[in-house]
Design a protein around this nucleic acid. Structure first.
Lengths: 143, 143
DNA sequence: CGGAATCCGCGCTGATACTG
DNA sequence: CAGTATCAGCGCGGATTCCG
């Protein structure tokens, strides 16, 4: 089992590197910007195991209940679904509405901010779909 | 330190869920497709800590040597840079050319496949740049 | 210069049990 | 139904050392 398969693990104080200016040249798009770069601060949020999947599933329906999401994704644990949703909510990408009923009902939906992100996610997914076979085969060839 | 900050950790046999059909509705874009979905198989590769950053840096120059990449990224360890580059190479996104000289010289560059991915990455980065302040502030508000 | 190899700690993840 | 709480384990990532 070589590395690179996935994932993180430890992650102590590494990001203190404040994105290191990244000295992007004329291509510009200077990342640094004061204390923290968007790549580390924002994109890392989708580097977790489930965020993108949750966003994709949510983008298919106007609103979804907790268990709808759970079934739609399938192999996510309750805990991680909760954690992922909370994070997305904290970032303002997903809204959470609790209905004071019994049994409880909670509806999740994308916020406007969340919706504004989706085109880019879908672009990435389309690329992934278009190229996954090539990539998988290359991956096998690779000694 | 609450969860959601980042990262993975253990990751044993989870992906066996073969993307669970994901029953995408009329919005279509059926993911499943036989044995594995592109999201899990391809996008997960960029969920690691460095891949996107390496691709971005590489997209700025036609070719880069190992230590150029190392300096450009700044706070990546040699090991992780090597691992990341090897993975990207295995996936066919980056090419690696070794020059039989002393001292050794190795040049990395994006392949055509890698270049075809960049527009989507840049789209994501632009979104992140445009919205990072909002997100960071929302994150702070969130109790 | 550009790695390879090794060791090891930290914290995310999943499982399980419990609750209003 | 929609969570919360607790816990243990494992694998990622960093640091270090060595090499051609």
């Amino acid at each position: 089992m070589q590395y690179g398969t996935r994932g993180f693990g430890t992650y102590p104080e590494v990001t203190k590197g404040e994105c290191q200016e990244n000295r992007m040249k004329e291509n510009s798009e200077v990342f640094s910007m004061s204390e923290s770069c968007p790549i580390r601060n924002v994109l890392d949020r989708f580097g977790d195991k489930w965020s993108i999947l949750v966003l994709l599933v949510l983008s298919d329906e106007e609103k979804m209940r907790f268990n709808e999401l759970h079934k739609a994704i399938g192999d996510i644990s309750q805990k991680m679904l909760t954690v992922t949703l909370r994070t997305l909510e904290a970032d303002g990408l997903v809204s959470r509405e609790v209905f004071p009923e019994i049994p409880p009902r909670v509806e999740y939906r994308l916020t406007l901010l969340g919706k504004s992100l989706m085109p880019h996610i879908h672009g990435l997914v389309k690329w992934a779909k278009d190229n996954q076979e090539v990539i998988v085969s290359k991956r096998k060839q690779y000694a």
